[in-house]
């Protein structure tokens, strides 16, 4: 499995560290239902069979965090982009 790092190009997945689901978002700790929302954030996952958005860090390369879209049934990489700056575009 190889991942197309936007900075380094196609690199072996072994150079990357995996964190997991990139769709979960840290809730507002001041919200009234924060405990329930933190439970969902920390523990519950969609865990799809098919395209999955996930966080990888190019730890043996440019050390940037990437949001990678990958098919969990075939390991095909659909897209990869830097996480930095992603929030601003939302």
């Amino acid at each position: 499995m190889r991942i197309p790092c936007p900075y380094c190009g196609w690199r072996d997945a072994q150079e990357f560290a995996y964190l997991g689901d990139a769709t979960v978002e840290r809730p507002d700790p001041a919200a009234a239902d924060a405990p329930a929302r933190f439970h969902d954030y920390v523990y519950l996952r969609e865990n799809p069979a098919g395209p999955h958005s996930e966080l990888w860090r190019h730890s043996a390369g440019c050390r940037q965090w990437l949001a990678v879209r990958r098919d969990t049934t075939t390991h095909e990489i659909i897209a990869a982009e830097f996480v930095r700056g992603r929030g601003a575009r939302r």
Partner: peptide, 18 residues
Amino acid sequence: GASSRLAGLADLKLPIES
């Protein structure tokens, strides 16, 4: 192995990754 998929059919989200 397929728990999330089956639970998903019942609209349940599980603390599981495959």
